[in-house]
């Protein structure tokens, strides 16, 4: 066996084992955080969940557990934010939905939503699920179209028609969900004033309390954020008083 080949194998083995080691570390950290949460040491649990989320930011269950610890620790705003993130990743999970609603019920501000049922029928699905569904229906449609080029078949015609309808529906839902993409912000401080603009001429429009939710519109000077409430109210708020995520690039 040549030395180059030996080196290759060593690299591959090391890489594989390092992956397993990371996975073991994450599992241990997760279990530690869970037991800390169960023992009421919420602050420590929060720190570990945060570290895990830095490595695995798209695990809905982690956001959910962190939300629980934050809620128990009295950090309602952050808890709501992480429940929202959990709901984005686990849109049909009843526990996530329940805890989000429960936490929202503890928020002080009542903000009427202008949304109707028909505004986003795809909200029960993840974006990636809708995209995957679109790809599958598209695959069936184009394959059936391709086969029909060479061979006419009654049943294949029906498969093509049904897959076309399914594809149109899934594409529509996916596009709607993509267009409806929100960048949620949640107020994390006890009180946060909302201003009409930034600078000298700013007028205080209203005051929000911890747990109030909005949608990030713009971020300026890394200090102020322009946001919109569900009832259409808009204003500038100090970045330090909210929790948010910046929009995805793709």
């Amino acid at each position: 066996m040549s030395s180059i080949r030996q080196l290759k194998i060593m690299v591959i083995v090391t890489f594989l084992f390092s992956g397993i080691a990371f996975a073991d570390d994450d599992s241990k950290a997760f279990m530690d955080a869970n037991s800390l949460h169960s023992n009421g040491e919420y602050q420590k649990a929060i720190e570990i969940y945060d570290q895990l989320l830095a490595r695995k930011k798209n695990v809905g269950e982690l956001h959910y557990n962190l939300g629980n610890s934050l809620f128990r620790n009295g950090e309602l705003g952050k808890a709501i934010f992480h429940y929202i993130k959990a709901k984005e990743l686990l849109p049909r999970n009843a526990d996530v939905k329940f805890n989000l609603n429960y936490a929202r019920s503890k928020a002080t501000d009542k903000i009427d939503s202008q949304k109707s049922f028909f505004s986003n029928p795809g909200s029960a699905f993840k974006k990636i699920e809708l995209l995957f569904l679109t790809v599958v229906t598209s695959l069936v449609f184009w394959i059936s179209m391709g086969v029909l080029l060479f061979r006419k078949n009654y049943y294949l015609g029906w498969i093509r028609n049904i897959s076309l309808i399914s594809m149109i529906i899934s594409v529509s839902l996916w596009v709607m969900v993509e267009l409806d993409q929100k960048n949620p912000i949640v107020v994390t401080s006890e009180k946060a004033h909302v201003y009409s603009t930034i600078g000298k001429n700013a007028i205080k429009l209203f005051t929000l309390h911890e747990g109030a939710e909005g949608n990030l519109v713009e971020m300026i000077e890394d200090k102020w954020a322009l946001f919109e409430l569900a009832d259409g109210k808009k204003g500038w708020i100090e970045k330090a008083k909210i929790i948010y995520t910046l929009p995805e690039k793709i």
Binding site: A23, D26, S27, F30, M31, N34, H37, L52, K56, N58, V59, G60, E61, L62, Y64, N65, N68, S69, F71, R72, L89, A94, D95, F98, N99, Y102, A103, K126, I128, L131, E248, K249, I250
Partner: peptide
């Protein structure tokens, strides 16, 4: 009260597909 946390470590494997999958 809140619903309980997830205890099963298998949930860590549920990481949503990344940007490249999209």
């Amino acid at each position: 009260d809140l619903r309980p946390i997830f205890y099963n470590t298998e949930v860590l494997d549920h990481e949503a597909k990344g940007v490249w999958f999209k």
